[in-house]
């Protein structure tokens, strides 16, 4: 079987998503039989983009002009473009302060020092290029990542999940932290696929996987209000990973 030619790139992000791929140590040998990781600056040097790719996986959001160029270049060269991780899918933590004055933000971080590069409000990938598939999460689940790669190797894209974290939480027969502990658990609004990793450990969902389709924000806000959480608190929590929440 012909190896799939793959590029893996990181934009504005912490590199954790790429790292979670490298952390699949048991599976790496099998991956190398299926894929030629041709362009993967984080894992290999020198990294030169060349020719066409069967798939590119892109971590991070866009916050600098050169990133946009890089992304468009990758898009042009690749059959499939996959958004890898929450920053790429919905902006993520880098976009936490979107909507605020950028010059003030810059000064609060760097003071009067000069910052080398020009930046703008971080954007998720889909605002700039067509995204064929997305693996969300901060970081993505290993299992989901491996399934994505295994599918790509055969030209199959993952089926989009359409249920919230609550679904898998109930499947695991967990205590409901929202209804039984009155915790600010974002499970009902957050895309599932993580097997309710945090609530299963007694930690309320932080919303790291971004919004579930058809999220019922109005009802959730009412329930949170009954538990004593005002709209601003919920908004801040929700926007930590996804600035595009409208509330």
């Amino acid at each position: 079987m012909k190896k799939l030619r793959v590029a893996i790139a990181g934009l504005t992000a912490c590199s954790g998503c790429q790292l979670s791929l490298l952390n699949c140590e048991d599976e790496l040998p099998r991956m190398l039989e299926l894929f030629e990781f041709h362009y993967f600056p984080m894992a290999s040097s020198p990294a030169l983009m060349e020719g066409e790719y069967d798939a590119v996986l892109v971590e991070g959001c866009l916050s600098m002009p050169h990133e946009k160029e890089l992304l468009q270049e990758l898009r042009r060269r690749s059959r499939y473009l996959v958004a890898l991780g929450t920053c790429a899918v919905c902006g993520g933590v880098a976009a936490l302060r979107n909507g605020e004055e950028r010059e003030q933000l810059r000064q609060s971080v760097y003071g009067e020092n000069q910052v080398a590069s020009e930046t703008y409000e971080p954007l998720p990938l889909h605002r700039v290029v067509q995204v064929d598939a997305a693996v969300t999460g901060c970081p993505p689940e290993k299992e989901e990542l491996l399934r994505l790669l295994a599918g790509l190797a055969r030209g199959v894209l993952p089926v989009a999940i359409d249920y919230p974290v609550c679904t898998e939480c109930r499947m695991r027969e967990n205590l409901c932290l929202l209804t039984e502990r009155s915790a600010l658990c974002l499970g009902p609004l957050t895309l599932g696929g993580c097997s309710a990793r945090c609530p299963s450990l007694g930690v309320p969902c932080e919303g790291c996987r971004g919004p579930v389709p058809e999220a019922n924000l109005a009802e959730a806000l009412e329930i949170y209000a009954e538990k004593g959480f005002d709209k601003a608190t919920v908004r801040d929590r929700l926007r930590r990973f996804c600035p595009e929440w409208k509330l």
Binding site: Y163, P164, C166, T167, R170, P188, E219, A220, I223
Partner: peptide
């Protein structure tokens, strides 16, 4: 429909 969170419970 207006109240359902779609959580599946």
């Amino acid at each position: 429909a207006s109240h359902c969170l779609g959580c599946g419970a």
